[in-house]
Amino acid sequence: MTSNTAQRRRPRRILAHGALVVGTVVMSYPLLWLLASSFKEDSKIFSSTGLIPNPVDLANYAEGWTGAGKSFTTFFTNSLVIGIVAVIGNVIFCSITAYAFARLDFRFRRFWFAMMLGTIMLPHHVTLIPQYSMFDYLGWVNTFLPLLVPKVMAVDAFFVFLLVQFIRTIPHELDDAARIDGCGPVRIFRHIIFPLLTPALATTAIFTFIWTYNDFFSQLIYLNDVDLFTVPLGLRMFLDATGESAWGPMLAMSAVALIPLFIVFLVFQRRIVQGIATTGLRG
């Protein structure tokens, strides 16, 4: 690029940066405002659009943490337990399923693979009612089981597909060498494929956690007992109980609820962006 064109382009660049900065501010303003308001007294939340709370008031957090009738400690514990078990389930069982599809040959494999791809597109409402009555019949409603048992059956077909894709990029020579040394399919999976899958498993784990943590619908349906409530259910109960009267504590707890997502995002930013760009996953 000659200095001439560089000079001609400079104003445009400044313009683009200006627009992007304005865009960033507009996009993140609600979040910043949430954070700021959570430190303000109720009366001040509505009287100012400003971001700097003065004085900084932690009362909202203290009040909100226990304000829903049950402490958010319970809600966070439940959400994290469900999230972690779901992640473990998906990592193990989606990868086993993916290994079978990608590396083994058995009767009707292609038929089952096509079925598996088909379930990716299925709206879950169409299985909802019978699943609910089945879990109800088993006495599982009001336990974590309806949320967790499906994870050991690799129902999140999208991750299976993602992992199949990844296994295909692992050279077959590795399997062949192991087979000559007398390894069966299980040992090949455990000692060769599974360790090499780490990047794809990380993507699977991250998105499983985010989706499970954000999930509202199935938790709403299956959990009725306050002791089992997760963070989204706790927030919702708080909202119903206090209505418009306790915005400060409400916003404070909303801010707290977003913290785990923020942490995951900050730590795994690159992997998340890559995961979306290459697979079309949604956050």
Binding site: S28, Y213, N214, P232, A257, L258, F265
Partner: peptide, 10 residues
Amino acid sequence: LPSLLGGSVA
């Protein structure tokens, strides 16, 4: 970031 948070109750 909003895509990641947007589906949540918060």
